[in-house]
Amino acid sequence: MTRQEMHELALAYLQQRLTIEEKLEVFRLIMENDDFLQVLSFELALLRRFAPLKTVAPAGVRERVQEKIIVVVQNPKKVIAERVIHQVLRGTMPQIAWAVYQPWQRRVFAYE
């Protein structure tokens, strides 16, 4: 078994994605192979390091996006018109005015 295969097996074991036969192979390797034990320990350490990235979407974002999709699906002409206006304003407004306009516009459309 190559080192790469050991990493893949160890990670699959820790993420509980193995068949019974594969689990038995892991148990055998844990008992007999010091290299595999090191690999397993490294994979566990990496999983712990990545754990803080397992976030969820804030409820506000979740609901707002779903509502916007419903609006787009139900009223596509209105959305196209808004996009055209958006592009025109973006092209013509000074940079500083655009920076003020954008957050305002997001709030207005979010609570429309």
């Binding site: 397992k54 976030t55 969820v56 979407a57 974002v61 979740r62």
Partner: peptide, 19 residues
């Protein structure tokens, strides 16, 4: 939705762009 949000948040810092 959480999977996609997480992925975009991993790639981008700008919350508006993520949304």
């Amino acid at each position: 939705v959480d999977t996609v949000y997480r992925f975009l948040k991993f790639k981008l810092e700008d919350e508006h762009l993520v949304e």
